[in-house]
Every structure is written in structure tokens, then in C-alpha cells.
Amino acid sequence: MDLSAINPVLLVASLMVAATPILLAAIGELVVEKSGVLNLGVEGMMITGAVCGFVVAVETGSPALGFVCAALGGAALALLFGLLTQYLMSNQVATGLGLTLFGLGLSALIGQSYVGIKAPATPRLEIPLLSDLPVLGRIVFSHDLMVYLSLALVAGVWMLLKYSRAGLILRAVGENHEAAHALGYKVIRIRLTAIAFGGACAGLGGAYLSLVRVPQWTEGMTAGAGWIALAIVVFASWRAWRVLLGAYLFGGITVLQLNLQAAGAAIPVEVLSMSPYLITILVLVVMSAGRARAALNAPASLGRVFHASN
């Protein structure tokens, strides 16, 4: 094994790239869960975003347009979930699972003639002087725009939830929908907005996978990233900054195991590729072991069906 082949600067830079899809999906799901809705369909929305973004980017040659369409596609699928759970009052767990299965099928169908094509390159930001700085330049100043957008989204969601009136209303709906309804807030409309936002974020995350990270389309390419995003929301105990921490931690593990594989570590490849999932489980255990603390932060109405009786 040759550990010196692993360049720490490149490692950190690629960690950010690896973490961005999960980060985007997780910050969207955080907002959804804060509004009291549990959408288990993140994986389905991500993969739909991945295929929408890829197809549009290939057809138009514009990655930017691809990302926009990925967000729209993810949001559209999320609104289907919203329609079912909010208006038709279906079980959120079952509907979320259905959304994942549906999304996997839909994406495979849309993407079947796009397998093996390379996506148009998403330009990396080149800031004169700053990008040329040693170490820092590569880590901080020369990513593509989506990495910065994901960071801005985390900051934005944090500010929205903590300081704005809209965030307060969103949290009120998530904590006690009956009280929020009695105060005159449109519970269903607010939740639908949150669900659509979550879908758009998941779609962006998926498109980042198919357009930047890989960058190709293959069936089922998200490979559980959506579920890891869900786990990260629990890990973060529903706080925006901790989502960032969680996502970068998992990005780090993913990149590190890939680097170890490339460096020919003595550990079997299968053990390395299952490590992100095993560590997710481990983190979930550690987080839920302090049950009282984690439960305090969970939105009180999470996963409960709202039906206005009058």
C-alpha cells in the first residue's frame, strides 16, 4: 500500500465534491421535516433529478439548464408526494417508499438511451489570484458554482429557520399543526411549499451526481445517497449547521475509502465500499443513544396526518 499517493489537498477538495449531493438533498429534507412531513422518497427524487439534469444538459449542452430542470423535476415528483399525503391523506412512510420505487423506474425509463454518454463539463470557477493560492486556492476557491450554492443554501436555511418570520411559521406548523391551523396559517399550503423545496434540493443533488461527480448516467446511480441524506438529518438533530458537518463527514469517508482502494490498501474492496453504510448505522446508533436529546429536537408533528375537521 502506498499512502503517499494520497494527496491531502486533493482529498479535501474531492471530499467537498463528494459531499455536495448528500448535502443538497439533506438540507432540503431538513426543511421538509421541520414542517412536520417525513418524505422517505429522497432517493427517488434524487435519481429523477439526476436523469432530468443529465438529459437536458446533454440535449442543450448547458449544464446550468440541466440543473434548473433537475430542480424542477425533483420538485414535480415531490409535489406528487405532497398531493398524496396532504390532500389524499395517505400514509407518509408508505408513500415515500412508493415515491422511491416510482422514481427509480421513471428515471431508468427516461435515461435508457443516455447510458454511456458523457455529460458536458460543468466549468470550475477560476478566480484570478485566489484560485492560484497554494493549498487554500484548490480547496476553497476553485470549485464549480454548485458547491458554493450548496453552502449558501445551508446558510440560507439556517437564517430562515432561526431569524425570519417565515421560518417561525414553518416550525410552528411542524411542531403543532392544529395550533398553527387555529392561528389561521394554511398548514397544507405551507407544507406543500416545503415539500416542493425539498424535492428541488434533492433534484439538484441528484444532478450534481450525474453531471459533476460521476459524470455519466447509469441506472440506480444514486446507490443509497438519498437514504444517507435522510440519516444525516437525524444525525444533525434537525439543525442546519450539523447537516453540513454530517454531509462533509460522509463525503470524507466516501473519498477516503475510494482513495484507499486506489492506493491498493490491504483491506478487501467490498469492506471499503460498505464502510459508508456501516458508518451511517454507527452514527445513527450514537445519535439515538442519547435519545432524550435527539427526541427533543424532532418536530413534534413529524409524520402525522393533518386533517382540518372544520
Binding site: S90, A94, L101, G105, S107, L109
Partner: peptide, 20 residues
Amino acid sequence: PSAAIQLFQGMLLFFLLAMD
């Protein structure tokens, strides 16, 4: 395409949940 049938099965679950 084989994926069409997967989509078909997903749709079935959706319609069922909606009609519940």
C-alpha cells in the same frame, strides 16, 4: 424497456395509496 414495468409497479402503489 424493462424499466417501464418497474414504473408500472410504482404507479400501482401510488394509485392504491391515493384511493385508500
